[in-house]
Amino acid sequence: METIRMIFKRIVLLSTVVVIATFLLSLLMRLLPGDPAAVLVPNAPEELRALIREETGLSKGIFGYYWQWLSGMLQGDFGKYYLNGGYRPVSEVLKKCLPPSLFLILYAQIVALALSIPLGLISAYKENSRFDRITSSVLFTAVSIPAFASGIILSLIFAVQLGWVDPIGYESPFGNPVEHFKLMILPVTSLAIGLTSSYTRLLRTDVIATLKEDYVTMAASKGISNKRVLWKHVFRPSSTTLLTSAALNMGGLIGGTIIVEIIFVIPGIGYEIAYSIGARQIVAMQTLIALVSFAYVFFNSTVDLITNITDPRTRERRV
């Protein structure tokens, strides 16, 4: 019962945040100087502009426009790109640009977790050892290198100079899996560098705290191996923050891949956002940004909810 009430409260909060955020986005679009229709279709005749104003709701004032956009979104009408006298529905673009972004994020997360879990555990276990200090400083440096710099430099070294992989492009994993993975190596690496650093540091901090717990001494006093103590008794209770932040990143990364997608020319959602901004397609841009922030808020609350329900310690606090 309490759980249901909690879920309900979250849903109300989430919808409020999304509605206000998207409304502010609409408002922002209306701040554009001049006629928004002229921005959308710069060289079109006045009749077409009027048509577009009507179609998008731009003629109806800010609330009318927002309402039309929102009800369209809820019915699956995501708006249009207006290009060269024609148009493309955003939903169609979305269908094409979501998979590349999701693959990119998924791979980056897998790589980052696969690296950071052992690194975090070992460097916490050997706190202040040489291994810990070297890992810490390397990761500290790595997290400070912006994704655009690491992306450009990676592509310069491995694609341009060594020629191991193509510097840009994307292939579907279903059509050409080998090429898909080859093209993904560099973008995934440049995304995973920062993630690995922050995950390792999070896990290390938590593991150091957990190692001081009585139940770890207790487990050790059973005479089981250090490895077993670390994996079975230390990792689980230390992993909450790590997993939470990994899950939260899923939402944030959808927007955060923009740079990597631009540098490696991957037709993902970040690429489309940048494109819609460059082409000043404000309706499409509003839709895409709204979806990204919805994804972010959605992941945020879902993760929060799940940890609340599943972690016995938070349950204990509630009781």
Binding site: D214, Y215, T217, S221, K222, K232, P237, D311, R313
Partner: peptide, 29 residues
């Protein structure tokens, strides 16, 4: 440890792993 010498800790609130079931902690040894 465990088979020859074993220890009972001071605070039962902190000496049991909060995220593992009693059964798994008891059968581990």
């Amino acid at each position: 440890w465990g088979t020859g010498m074993a220890m009972i800790f001071q605070d039962p609130m902190t000496a049991l792993n909060p995220v593992r079931r009693i059964g798994s902690q008891l059968t581990e040894s």
